[in-house]
């Protein structure tokens, strides 16, 4: 290639800006991640059966406890007696949440391990787009898992979903992604500074899962954990997602869930982005970007 041609490419590359350019970069990262994952057949197999393997122990335990698909205790606590649908829809979201936390949170660590993080950091895209690209991939990856689990729950276990609630449930996921991105940025900060920060992330994700009302209402949590649960975006996402898929447009808690998510979106994404920018600057100043 001639020098003139090269210079033209560089000029075009450096002049790129705006939302569409960042979106293109994010989808390139998402596609690259799919290519990597699909080259490991075992990962594909795990991805297909994972939602069932997580759900089935809850199903067996619930059947052993109640002997049927109805529970009077759950009805007293939530107004829903069908524990099977309650748990199937709640746990369907688990795969997506874990995929976002671990997949996106450790995306930069993976680049670091394969020696491409510094190169990626020199590309003319926003630093945050690196993480958003991974979120986009994990949203697709985890989203497929949600569809698989819900599909199997309907076909195999007889769970009934309200079709009118599907679009609003997707809107709830859309709202939750913004707040979850804040949590993901925090995880990235831990990974960038602590390098082997998986233990901290394991604690963080386990606590977030514990306080989320996936298989039980927050009323059964100890009071102190109920406060933590209210401040977690996962809580309102699961409540809204399940509410819409069970009751459709007649879901009563919609206003509370949406307002709570909007407030948490603003707080989490601002704090997360600021934390990420500060950490990234600090790590670069220390020259520790490619350190293991």
């Amino acid at each position: 290639m001639t020098e003139e041609g090269q210079s033209e490419i560089f000029q075009k590359m450096w002049s790129r800006k705006g939302f569409r350019a960042e979106l293109r970069a994010a989808s390139a990262i998402a596609i690259k991640q799919w290519k990597v994952e699909l080259s490991y057949p075992l990962s594909v197999l795990w991805f297909i059966i994972m939602p069932f393997i997580w759900f089935i122990p809850y199903l067996i335990a619930g059947t052993a406890l109640t002997g049927s698909s109805e529970s009077i205790h759950l009805q007293d606590l939530t107004g829903i007696s069908d524990w099977l649908s309650y748990i199937a829809i709640g746990t369907a979201f688990t795969g997506l949440a874990l995929s976002l936390l671990w997949g996106s949170g450790f995306a930069l660590r993976r680049e670091q391990n394969v020696g491409t993080l510094e190169t990626l950091m020199t590309t003319p895209m926003n630093r945050e787009t690196l993480v958003w690209g991974s979120t986009l991939h994990n949203l697709q990856h985890g989203g497929l898992g949600v569809i698989l689990q819900l599909g199997a729950s309907v076909l195999i276990f007889g769970v009934s979903l309200n079709v009118w609630g599907i679009l609003p449930a997707l809107a709830i996921i859309g709202l939750s992604i913004i707040a979850m991105q804040g949590v993901i940025f925090a995880v990235v900060c831990i990974v960038l500074t602590a390098k082997q920060g998986w233990m901290i992330v394991e604690f963080l994700s386990s606590i977030l899962m514990l306080v989320a009302p996936m298989t039980y209402p927050i009323a059964v949590l100890p009071p102190i954990l109920q406060y933590v649960s209210v401040a977690s975006p996962l809580t309102w996402t699961v409540e809204g997602f399940r509410g819409f898929l069970m009751y459709g447009l007649a879901y009563e808690g919609v206003i509370t869930a949406v307002i709570a998510l909007i407030i948490l979106d603003v707080i989490f994404v601002i704090v997360g982005t600021l934390l990420f920018r500060a950490t990234e600057r600090l790590v670069r100043q220390r020259g520790a970007l490619s350190q293991f």
Partner: peptide, 22 residues
Amino acid sequence: LWFAPFILMATAIAGPSTSTHF
């Protein structure tokens, strides 16, 4: 933290500590 969700789920659908079927 991994098995607490099972205990909480059991509490939510069967009441505290026990159920006749179990």
